[in-house]
Simulated assay, not measured.
Amino acid sequence: MSDLLLDAVVSGVQVIDLGRQLKVGMPQSPNHPQFWHTMPRRHGDVMRSDGGSAANDMITTGTHVGTHIDALAHVSQDGKLFGGVDASASCLGGKYVEHGVHTIEPMIRRGILIDPPTWLGVSDLEGGREITVGDLKQSLQSQGTVIRAGDVVLIRSGWGKKFAEGAAYLGGTSGVPGISEEGATWLAAQGIHTVGADTIAFERLAPGGGHAHLPAHRIFLVENGIYIVEALDLEELSARKIYEFTLVLVPLNIFGATGSPVRPLAVVAA
């Protein structure tokens, strides 16, 4: 019997990398440990008798830096995780057993891009701007895209272009564009599997407000069991007007962790 997926791959596919390159000093939320990479052994430090040499690396990192996914264990509300799980009791031996990142199954799913700046005729949204339900609906209509249950929905604000600028990407004084509680509620009602955005904390950050108020995290992670992916690079998808694709995403299988760095891929026919 022919394998239709293998046939499609053999026929040719294009892969668009949606992940950020991990670098020391890259912008990240102040709430998480930074990424650090060093080489304890470089070529020439130790030489074999035959002239060969090997280099090796060591990294330390928070699990919520760079492009990463939030597990359901990441956020609690009134002491409860998704499904009413007791947040304190769920942490056994310093590991979140029930909703840790190890419980996220590898994703090969229909992904869609929602691109409000393109619909609005601007290159990117200004800091602190709310992406409203109307923006989402109008963008989908203009793209000819329909959300289906089980989809991975990625929202572009254009703010991702600031990633290389460092502090500007965090939007401390300017705020960061994104959906609010209303937008999160509407998206969750569509029965989606995962959401993502090109910003540091997925949802709207008010100017000067920092990460003090994150209602979309509560709605997705605690109330609906929907994963969140942050700090995506969505510029190529937007430039090429690719609004529907196969999304491949696999978190690191870290037992009991609240999140994981990821390198999501959008795959389309060549």
Rank of each mutant, 00 (worst) to 15 (best):
G66P: 07
Q143I: 00
G93Y: 15
L136E: 00
L265N: 03
T185L: 06
F82D: 03
V195T: 14
G225S: 14
T199Y: 06
T173H: 04
I155Q: 01
G12H: 14
V10T: 10
D151M: 06
E98P: 08
V152R: 00
G121I: 08
A257R: 10
Q138T: 11
G100L: 08
V152Q: 02
H211W: 08
S180K: 05
G100W: 04
Q190D: 12
L205S: 02
E181I: 02
S2M: 15
K95H: 14
G19E: 05
H213T: 07
L120P: 08
V248G: 02
G93V: 14
D17H: 10
Q28H: 15
F35W: 10
A8K: 13
Q138S: 14
L140C: 05
V222G: 09
G94C: 11
Q141V: 04
C91F: 11
Q34F: 13
A257C: 13
R109T: 09
L249H: 03
H74S: 12
E126Y: 05
F82N: 11
A197I: 04
G51W: 02
S29D: 10
P106T: 02
N31Y: 12
T118N: 02
G79I: 15
F220Q: 05
V75T: 15
H37P: 04
G150M: 05
L247H: 03
F220D: 03
L72E: 11
A89G: 13
A197F: 07
A149N: 10
S260M: 09
H99Y: 15
D3A: 02
G175E: 01
H211K: 04
F220P: 05
G171K: 01
D57W: 08
D57R: 09
A164W: 07
T246A: 02
D124F: 00
G100H: 07
G175K: 00
L4G: 05
V15M: 13
G191N: 14
P261D: 11
E130W: 04
W159S: 01
G134N: 03
G52I: 06
G208C: 07
I16A: 12
T61W: 01
G209Y: 09
